[in-house]
Write a protein that binds this DNA or RNA. Structure first.
Lengths: 352, 352
DNA sequence: GGCTGTTATGTTTACGTAAACATTCGGTGG
DNA sequence: CCACCGAATGTTTACGTAAACATAACAGCC
């Protein structure tokens, strides 16, 4: 008590106001008439504390509104029970859904999630983010971003931090959790070909996106496998607006009967463009998306798309980092989360 | 001390692989041949360090890959430089966009953001979340949730934690940042009435949502103000699917010419339902949404909607909590972020 | 009755940082 | 020429917790 008063009045000058700070173990110990170590034992539910004593301590805790100071705890334990998540943007469905799942899984495991947004995807920015993470109270990091940007920052990543990367091809250097883009794309293309379409056009995502690239490559491979020719893909930037613009161009292609869009938002824009140009979906043109965002079932028409299990991705990310934290060693290799084709009304046999 | 000396001298210049754990100030001090206090001064860019010494220290830092330990720092400073965000779900556009803006603003101010998801919105869950937050390394909390659930948890909220609430009517007890729902709704209804519609129907959000309630009340008020009758509102749960189901019912209403949907997703479902029932938009029925999600410009037809400035909401939230942290005292009162009507193609004069 | 083991509790110490206080040293003004 | 200044640097201490170690009381056993 006295020590506390002293220090408070000592630093009470300009900057320090009255400390409404939490009571410490020592305070609880004093009130309960025990040592602070016993308070610690009660707080951490350690065995070897008399029931009566425990009650007394708990009463004191309640009285003082005691909450353990996590900074001290982290300092002592050398662990923060926190996972950092680095990402560029929360504008894409995938990132958000993954983040949500990560947060939920982490909470289940008693871990908190700290968000580290990187505003502008320049190398310096990423490097800065990692360096800030180094100072951050974080035991492990989950990175949701393109691998080439990650590379730029690699050196700045503190060596003891465990990392899991989402949606990347860096499986040789990091633990990677990825959606089975290839499988989903293949299923989408096969579905269209099986319906009788001669070939499938592609509304691709941005060039600098690894996920987009994977889908494009898989689309090409699936066509090649069936011995079909791959038309030149048209690129968007994931947004519905870009899908619309690309769709206007696609609508002018002669012989267009089926389009595989790299995500649902672009598919939405595509639907609008086709509608405006008088191409009916699915009678004239079949459209298939990727992601299965909640709204896609309400598009006009309801969109056939590839469902991604973001929740599972998040779960595996958390499991991955926690495994690394426990074992205290880095992991490598890629985990693939399966996808599933959801058939709705935007695909049909080509017009007769 | 002894073990530490050994290990430090042992690794000298080569990176020891055993405890690659962060080097401490003491390690840096030893290498640089100064006291740890001088290292601290360099690390915090304090004045009164000789240039030459500073260089030497910085060299040592680089060599050892030194990163300040934030747990120790937080313990010493009594502050974490972290803002906690409590929310139920990242499934709604608003929450996500707000969170994104919060994260960005916080990063700008040098604060990290810790996410605390609450899976199931029961009172116990919320209480648990707050109590966990109490142990968390957090200086302030931003709550994105309905106020009645917040109330349930009020007692569990540690008293020293500063709070800002988004989208709530608890301005008398907390600092609240809210979107001008009433203004936006009013603009939407006026827009439709000015186009010549006799009245405006309402596709409402879930009952337990404060934001939904505000919009419903404002819609009713705007109609009353114009001396029009308010039809019974139809309820959805924010999802496009629920909008579709509600839309099927609305499509059967005789005299339906204009609908104000409480968010864009439900408007999307509504569009689909109207389309299926052969009611053309906007020729037969005008539809207006709320939120202005990025996709709404690509709906069929592009949606007239009320734009919400989530970025501004996030910014004000961060500013609010940081102000409280600095002043070390709680604030109250509500800040309103203005909305803006975005007119696209889903509204027109009623069919002649 | 002394020895051992067990249970309940107290004491010391260290985690890494940084504020507060102490020391050193080359000047400078009285 | 020396006491004093201030710049540069070192030493002590405290933040709150918890591991490691220490103590105390008591039961069981030969």
């Amino acid at each position: 008590m006295k020590a506390r008063d002293d220090s408070a009045s000592a630093r009470g000058g300009a900057a320090g106001r009255r400390r409404t700070q939490n009571a410490s173990m020592a305070d609880v110990a004093r009130v309960a008439g025990v040592s602070s170590q016993t308070v610690s034992r009660v707080a951490n539910a350690f065995p070897g504390v008399n029931e009566e004593t425990r009650q007394r301590v708990q009463a004191a805790m309640g009285e003082l509104g005691y909450h353990p100071n996590s900074a001290a705890r982290a300092l002592k334990r050398g662990a923060f029970h926190t996972i950092g998540v680095i990402t560029f943007t929360l504008s894409t469905t995938g990132n958000v859904r993954t983040l949500e799942a990560i947060a939920a899984s982490a909470a289940e495991e008693g871990y908190a999630v700290t968000l580290l947004p990187v505003a502008v995807p320049t190398q310096d920015e990423v490097r800065g983010a990692f360096s800030r993470l180094g100072e951050l109270a974080v035991d492990a990091v989950i990175v949701i971003m393109e691998v080439h940007l990650l590379d730029a920052a690699r050196l700045a990543l503190p060596p003891h931090v465990k990392v899991v990367v989402v949606d990347s091809d860096a499986g040789d250097r990091y633990a990677v959790v990825d959606t089975d883009q290839a499988g989903g794309t293949r299923a989408a293309v096969r579905h269209l070909l099986d319906l009788g379409h001669r070939t499938v056009w592609h509304l691709a995502g941005p060039e600098d996106s690894f996920a987009a690239e994977r889908r494009t490559v898989a689309w090409r491979a699936a066509l090649a496998e069936a011995g079909r020719e791959a038309p030149e893909p048209v690129r968007g930037d994931w947004s519905a607006e870009s899908g619309y613009r690309a769709g206007l161009r696609l609508a002018e292609q002669p012989g267009l009967t089926a389009v595989f869009a790299a995500n649902d938002q672009m598919a939405l824009g595509l639907l609008r463009a086709l509608h405006e140009r008088g191409r009916r979906v699915p009678e004239d043109v079949s459209v298939i998306g990727f992601d299965d965002i909640p709204e896609s079932g309400s598009f006009l028409p309801p969109l056939t798309t590839v469902h991604q299990d973001f929740a599972e991705v998040g779960r595996r990310c958390v499991a991955g980092v926690l495994r690394q934290v426990e074992q205290d060693e880095a992991e490598r290799g890629t985990t693939l989360v399966p996808t599933r084709l959801v058939v709705r009304s935007s695909t049909a046999a080509p017009g007769v």
